[in-house]
Design a protein around this nucleic acid. Sequence first.
DNA 1: GCAAGCCAAATCGTATACGATCTTAAGATT
DNA 2: AATCTTAAGATCGTATACGATTTGGCTTGC
Lengths: 234, 234
Amino acid sequence: MDDTNKLPARSDDDIHREIYNAIIDGRLHPGEKLGQDELGKVFGVSKTRIRPILHRLSDQKIVTIEPMRGAFVARPSVEEAREVNAARQIIEEGVIRAATRVAKPKHLKMLRRIVADENEARQGQNMGCAHRLTGEFHCELARITGNEVVADVVRDLVSRDSLVVGLYQRPNSSACSLHGHSQLIDRIAAGDEDAAAHAMRHHLQDVMASLDLGPGQPSSASLKSAFSHIGNSQ
Amino acid sequence: MDDTNKLPARSDDDIHREIYNAIIDGRLHPGEKLGQDELGKVFGVSKTRIRPILHRLSDQKIVTIEPMRGAFVARPSVEEAREVNAARQIIEEGVIRAATRVAKPKHLKMLRRIVADENEARQGQNMGCAHRLTGEFHCELARITGNEVVADVVRDLVSRDSLVVGLYQRPNSSACSLHGHSQLIDRIAAGDEDAAAHAMRHHLQDVMASLDLGPGQPSSASLKSAFSHIGNSQ
DNA sequence: GCAAGCCAAATCGTATACGATCTTAAGATT
DNA sequence: AATCTTAAGATCGTATACGATTTGGCTTGC
């Protein structure tokens, strides 16, 4: 939407965001190889600039780097999935408590709008967009605290969970998050901190329970096609 | 001297940790310049390997990178200090609640031991060690949750706060944390989640209040002396 | 026919080299 | 004397080049 006819993304942050989004949006699948030379050609730069970006993604646990083997889109294990979810339960409890204390009507409005958009996307069978908005809800909730550090932490966790959901989600069982989100908003609106915290924990548990924790298989797609919108031919 | 690479092959993580610890322990002061060539000579490697490490430290907000200028030890502003502290209040509330729910006697024992060590260090005027243990207490508290993701998040936040404290701490007003930590342990031992959360918020507020938020001055020390224990000549 | 070993191709990790940009300091002008 | 200009030095950012390691296939032997 923003980078249509702009020739190759220039800054390191742009390239980082490009790969990041490609992974979160599911255009690059878990397990897929991210060759340095190949990515360099895609973005029209040398692999010297690609390497630190891959390491940064590795720090974010979005990418796995195997020494002398290369970088791959992370394929979180079931154990890691459980741990990230548990971390979200712990951290987002503090977040929703803080948010409940300071939430104003405009914040609630914003949250309701996200839920509405998510509902709309889901009705339109636009599952990718709906999935993205599901994460956006939690990020927006963190932003209510007015604390950017907290927002960053939550965003990182949500990103990792996006990978998990993409891997282990059952075909058609994700309507529960809509009800969960609405319930969270109601609790916040009521100013009931304990109830909101309780609802958050259960909401995240529900999301976890809705997953199919059998091993997901990485379907390999073309790397170049995922970045086709950049329009840089080798 | 024979610099024919007889130092144990240092991994990037080792170098990262070395610089990281030097900053957290206060051997490198906020604002100090971290030249790529200079650091490369210190560790006996090329700046090619130093650069990504500096970027990684920049992601952790421990180092500031000014484009085309270089890297410097981060000198968090008063505003950033407040934000990190606020983030800790939000996140560590969730942490201490989770810890209270699952804490076992051995965990309490570990926490009390850290407080004892901290007290001992403070009596022995070993303020650097005492300061480090103050952070260690909060990290250990996070580890009680059994969740490594949470522990990592807390460690990052505590690290950033270490820089803040090093910059803005008043000469001799840091005994309050001892009482605060003991109180936290008591609340956890009592299994009173709400009281523990309340105590945590106030503890972190107290730490913040004990700071002198006048501008701290960066004292520039020699870069090589900070890594003198590595013993790499030239 | 199958397994083990070796060689070639590919890819990664690091060092070196080079152009770009900022800083510094000296010199000329007002 | 102060300030603007300019040139030299230093440092950063990137590309290229080279050694190290893995992979996959082919040969060889059983």
